[in-house]
Amino acid sequence: MHQDTLKPALEIRGLCKSFDRPAVEGLDLYVRPGEFYMLLGPNGAGKTTTLRMVSGLLRPDDGSISVFGVDALADPVAAKQIIGWVSDEPMIYDKLTPSEYLEFVAGLWNVERGVAERRARDLIGWLGLEKVAHARCEPFSRGMRQKVALAGALVHEPKLIILDEPLTGLDAGSARLVKTVLTERVRAGATVIMTTHILEIAERMADRIGVISGGRLIAEGTLQELRERVGTGDSCLEEMFLTIVEQDAAAA
């Protein structure tokens, strides 16, 4: 455990990925253990592509990814064991119940039965899914689906939780619940990397913020560090973000 705290939660070096055009270009990123890291950027900046490569959903063209010292490209299975992934589009099974879904996910991550049962019960309770725990997910609202997907991502207690726009389309109550669960996880020692377009959330929750544009990291630091860098006094994150992106676009 002590060893893990010395290793970066995520270390990305020279990451590249092209589709029709370059999506990520020589990205370097360093996320500390136990940190709530927000990755911001305009649409098409390469945020999702980066996170999908970290999660093993995309193969990079070049570069390296290390998760708590595990080379995610050389040993993806070991890296996946300690990662939890939640996308903006909750992907669950309509014909399974939340309880069955968690059983399935616990099986995939090889979680011991007793442990999985306790965690599943806790997660179902925290996320307010008790009443529907044994009902099929088919009629669930988007918010409920996202909660089930989040429970699935947390049932193996990942050390690194990656969330791509997890709050999209959620009502205020569900969004608050998700934020609370994530904050609790960080307090418990997990590392969270999250993308969002809701900058107020980034402002309130993030330990550090990374701004990505054109597939490169163009700014990084705490809120205060970013303020100092931009030189906008005590302006809000939205203003700083827009200034950083505009400055980068002008420099390019």
């Binding site: 309509d94 014909k95 119940t97 309880s99 069955e100 059983e103 616990a106 099986g107 979680v111 011991e112 039965r113 999985a116 049962e117 599943a120 529907v132 725990a133 044994h134 009902a135 099929r136 088919e138 009629p139």
Partner: peptide, 15 residues
């Protein structure tokens, strides 16, 4: 669709 019918309520968690 299937929201009212409960599946596996009361049975042991299976991993």
């Amino acid at each position: 669709h299937g929201g009212t019918r409960l599946h596996g309520a009361g049975r042991a968690f299976r991993v």
